[in-house]
Simulated assay, not measured.
Amino acid sequence: MLPRRALGRQLRKMRLREGITQAGAARVAEVSPQSYGRLEDGLKTKVTDLAMNALCNAFSSTDEERRIILDLASDIRQSQGSDGGWWQSYAEAVPKTFNHFIGLEESATHISSWEVALLPGLLQTREYRRALIWAEYPDMPTEKVELSLDIVMRRQEVLMKNDFHFEAMIAEPVLHAPIGGPAVSADQLSHLLAASRLPSVTMRIVKRDAGDLLGLITGSFVVFDLPPLPSSRMRQSSVAYAEGYFGRVYIERESEVAMYTRAVERLRRVACSPEESRELVLEARKEWEQ
């Protein structure tokens, strides 16, 4: 999925530079306008070197741009049959709008997460997540609930990767939210403490009196830092998933992603240290154990 999106962005940039319409580009590639539109949107469609070379000729591409386009096309073909990854086998339980989130989660080398209401999915226990699902979907069949929980647990395997780091910044009130009752909440905080000691995880709490209101204004969000693409070694810009400034959307425009990377930097400045954060979690757990 990520090479497709990178290819689409690169083709669009070159096409607009030459003042060519999508319909004109479709004629060059000998595909329908709908198929070419899917290509620029990063959606699944056939990618051939013949069509890519024709488009590069029409767009007056440099030798470097042509190499990037052909390498991206090669990356896409190598991934054919595995687009979407392991979660394809859970298609009935994974909303289409969440496919991209899991793909980013699996591909990222670093994820910065800011949460103002709930603990991040990568750090949730099965029972904590179960309580959230029942609250939102009280009529969901038990089998589908269990399938959804299996997906969350499978997602968490990313924390075991050597080349991955998860930075979780959490608003202090989240520790005191009554999710699933005292026993579930206490167990969840014990799990949070254990997860915070993993080499791949940094957990930091932002206290109520931190003094910087930006985190409340943005709402919860996630920033994904991505590795270079395999064949082209093309740098991939970070992607943000936000539930604040722009609603629940994926943000790829660099100037907009920069708003969230700056928010991450400001949150880091006011967040407690990992050690202080664990003390706050311990205190909150005592409340649930009483």
Rank of each mutant, 00 (worst) to 15 (best):
R155P: 03
H110S: 07
L189F: 11
A58S: 15
V239K: 02
G181V: 01
R129A: 12
E279C: 11
V257H: 03
L282Q: 08
I179V: 04
S190Q: 11
S238H: 09
E265R: 13
F164Y: 14
A284I: 05
A135E: 10
A210M: 14
R129E: 13
V116R: 10
S200W: 15
E146C: 01
A177C: 10
A117P: 00
M259F: 15
L213N: 12
D83A: 14
E256A: 12
D163N: 04
H191D: 04
P33S: 11
Y137L: 13
S232K: 03
P199M: 08
G37W: 11
A284N: 03
L122C: 00
L280D: 05
A23P: 00
Q80G: 14
Q80F: 15
V222T: 06
E105Q: 06
W134D: 12
R27A: 15
R197S: 07
N53I: 09
L70D: 00
R155I: 06
M153Y: 13
A240S: 08
I102Y: 05
F164G: 02
G8H: 14
A131F: 15
R5G: 01
M259C: 07
E64N: 13
L72P: 00
A284L: 07
S231E: 14
Q34E: 07
V116M: 07
S79C: 14
A183L: 03
I170N: 01
R5T: 01
L122I: 00
R248Y: 09
D150L: 05
G180T: 13
R9G: 07
P230L: 00
E283C: 11
D139C: 06
L175I: 10
A117E: 15
A108H: 09
A284S: 13
A258N: 01
Y36A: 01
G181I: 01
I68R: 09
R9T: 01
R262V: 02
K144F: 13
C56T: 06
K96V: 08
R12L: 03
R266A: 10
H100R: 15
E289K: 12
Q10D: 03
L123E: 09
D71M: 09
E279D: 12
D163I: 04
V116A: 14
R269G: 07
L149P: 05
P199I: 10
E243L: 07
E106N: 06
Q156F: 09
F164R: 04
T109P: 01
A93L: 03
